[in-house]
Simulated scan of single mutants.
Amino acid sequence: MTPRVRVLEVLEPPDGTTRYADQLVEPLPDHVEVVWFTWRRALREKYDVLHVHWPEWLVRTRPSTLPRRVATRLAFVALLLRLRLTRTAIVRTEHNPEPHEPGGRTERALLRWLDRRTTLRVHLNPLPGGEGPHDVVIPLGHYRAQLGGHPISARVPGLLVYFGKIRDYKGVDLLLDAFAQARAGLTLRVVGNPQTPQWRALVEDAAREDPRIGHVLEFVADDTLVGEVTAAELAVLPYRDLHNSAVVLVALSLDTPVLVPSTPVTRGLAQEVGPGWVHFFEGTLDTADLHRAVDDLRAAPPVGRPQLDARAWDVIGASYARAFEAAARSAHHPGAATNHPESVQIA
Rank of each mutant, 00 (worst) to 15 (best):
49 V>M: 08
98 E>K: 07
112 R>N: 08
107 E>S: 05
71 A>K: 03
73 R>G: 04
84 R>K: 13
104 G>M: 13
104 G>W: 10
97 P>Q: 06
66 L>E: 10
67 P>W: 06
116 R>H: 11
64 S>A: 11
108 R>P: 06
56 E>T: 11
92 R>F: 12
65 T>F: 12
65 T>D: 11
70 V>G: 05
81 L>T: 10
83 L>R: 00
64 S>D: 15
49 V>G: 01
70 V>L: 13
76 F>Q: 00
113 W>D: 06
120 L>V: 04
91 V>D: 00
57 W>M: 14
99 P>V: 09
61 T>E: 13
50 L>Y: 01
118 T>R: 00
100 H>W: 13
55 P>H: 03
102 P>K: 03
81 L>Y: 14
92 R>W: 15
80 L>S: 09
104 G>E: 14
104 G>A: 08
117 R>K: 10
97 P>T: 12
77 V>M: 02
105 R>V: 14
122 V>S: 04
51 H>G: 00
107 E>I: 15
110 L>H: 01
56 E>G: 06
82 R>Y: 04
72 T>E: 12
80 L>H: 10
123 H>G: 04
60 R>E: 11
74 L>I: 12
71 A>W: 08
74 L>R: 11
101 E>A: 14
56 E>L: 09
107 E>Y: 07
94 E>W: 10
77 V>P: 02
88 T>E: 00
112 R>S: 11
84 R>E: 15
95 H>D: 11
95 H>Y: 15
77 V>Q: 13
83 L>I: 04
94 E>P: 05
52 V>I: 12
51 H>W: 12
75 A>F: 02
78 A>D: 05
79 L>Y: 01
90 I>M: 03
67 P>Y: 09
79 L>G: 01
93 T>L: 06
59 V>F: 03
118 T>E: 01
108 R>D: 14
81 L>E: 13
116 R>Q: 11
50 L>A: 00
49 V>P: 00
110 L>W: 04
106 T>V: 10
70 V>F: 07
111 L>Q: 06
87 R>V: 05
114 L>H: 02
92 R>G: 06
51 H>E: 05
113 W>I: 07
88 T>V: 02
51 H>R: 08
75 A>P: 01
83 L>Q: 00
88 T>Y: 04
78 A>Y: 09
51 H>C: 05
124 L>R: 01
85 L>F: 15
50 L>W: 01
121 R>A: 02
50 L>S: 00
111 L>E: 04
54 W>C: 06
72 T>K: 14
119 T>D: 03
122 V>F: 08
80 L>F: 09
66 L>W: 13
108 R>Y: 08
117 R>N: 06
77 V>L: 14
65 T>N: 07
